[in-house]
Simulated assay, not measured.
Amino acid sequence: MPLDHYVTLGRSGLRVSPFCLGAMTFGEDLGWGSSVKDSEAILDRFIELGGNFIDTANLYTKGHSEKIIGDHIGHDRQKRDRLVIATKFSGNLYVGDPNGGGSNRKSILAACEQSLRRLRTDYIDLYWLHNWDKFTPIEETMAALHDLVQSGKVRYIGVSDTPAWKVTQGQLIAQFRGWAPFIGLQIEYSLLERTVEGELIPMAQELGLGVTPWSPLRSGILSGKYTRRNAATVKPEGRQWTASYLDERSYTVIDELERIAKQLETTVARVALSWVQARPAVSSTIIGARTLAQLDDNVRALEVKLTPEQTAALDALTAPKLNFPAEFLNLAHMIQAGGTTINGQPSQLIPFGVTKKGDHY
């Protein structure tokens, strides 16, 4: 699948490339990331390959990420209109201002105007709630976002890094009141972070939200750079928290990725990205790159097709332990199915309340 084989995002008609270019690394303001020149080159290459979906946030590199994008494409109206530019609100860029961030009406409207100026555009294609603000009623947030859509300053809205129950509440309020609904869900999702499969992924499927995973390579841990063989000498640099992800479990997954990559004559990163992009509910995976070489390598993951056996091996190795009631419901569904096959999935009849040894719970 090439980058210009577009998909619709969730239950909407918005067409986006199967990979989304994440711009969190645009700018060196935080001591790591890409220079302005390199960021512009990455943007151009992504667009040249057919990519049209770009994701940033007001908080990324203190607003510089948005400005780099705006300065580079804002002057070309035709190019800008061809792109789907997504940005986020909630982050506070103004120390000491309690309304400088969050999801209340005042902060949302101000953040939108500021992002429009930095992006040098008069509309945002997809405006993400960056993360849940527990101090603001969700109906206030949804009403403000609907007003932005009605005004034409925002085309669609999405939600990121928010509990499933709160997303559901916001979505149902929007449906009942005829407001603009969420069309996308942005969450961390990778072979090393699959707990979202318990609540968030099923919720997205039920409510028609297209999932756009971030950190599909777990902050570069699954890039192929780190292996069991070089564990003593090669350590993550830049973001301090990344080193904590390298443990025995990670190396076991990397070992399997190396085995599969060798079979397919490809790279570890491409295998890891291919696994994420093929997951149920995933529309477009967010990939980051600090160099053109990284971008070119990651985009080629769209050419990788894992076999059912390879997918099953990765699934079994990384299966998450889900919170209640996930495991209990698996048992209940088998009982309800009566040992039949439903939707192609076989079930095994187990008497309710009785273990295989005949003991009661």
Results as ranks from 00 to 15, higher is better:
C112A: 12
S115V: 07
R117W: 01
R120Q: 15
R120E: 10
T121M: 04
T121L: 05
I124V: 11
D125Q: 06
L126W: 15
H130C: 05
P137T: 06
P137Q: 07
P137Y: 03
E140F: 04
E140A: 06
M142T: 11
M142K: 13
A143D: 14
A143W: 05
A144V: 10
L145I: 12
L145N: 11
D147P: 01
Q150M: 15
Q150K: 15
Q150F: 06
K153C: 01
V154R: 08
R155L: 09
I157T: 13
G158I: 12
V159A: 02
V159L: 02
D161V: 08
P163K: 06
P163T: 05
T168L: 14
Q169D: 14
G170Y: 11
Q171L: 06
F176D: 13
G178M: 08
W179N: 10
P181I: 08
F182W: 10
F182R: 01
L185V: 02
E188R: 13
Y189A: 00
R194Q: 04
V196R: 03
E199I: 00
L200N: 04
I201Y: 00
M203R: 05
M203P: 04
M203I: 06
A204V: 03
E206V: 04
V211P: 01
T212N: 03
T212H: 02
P216M: 05
R218P: 00
I221H: 01
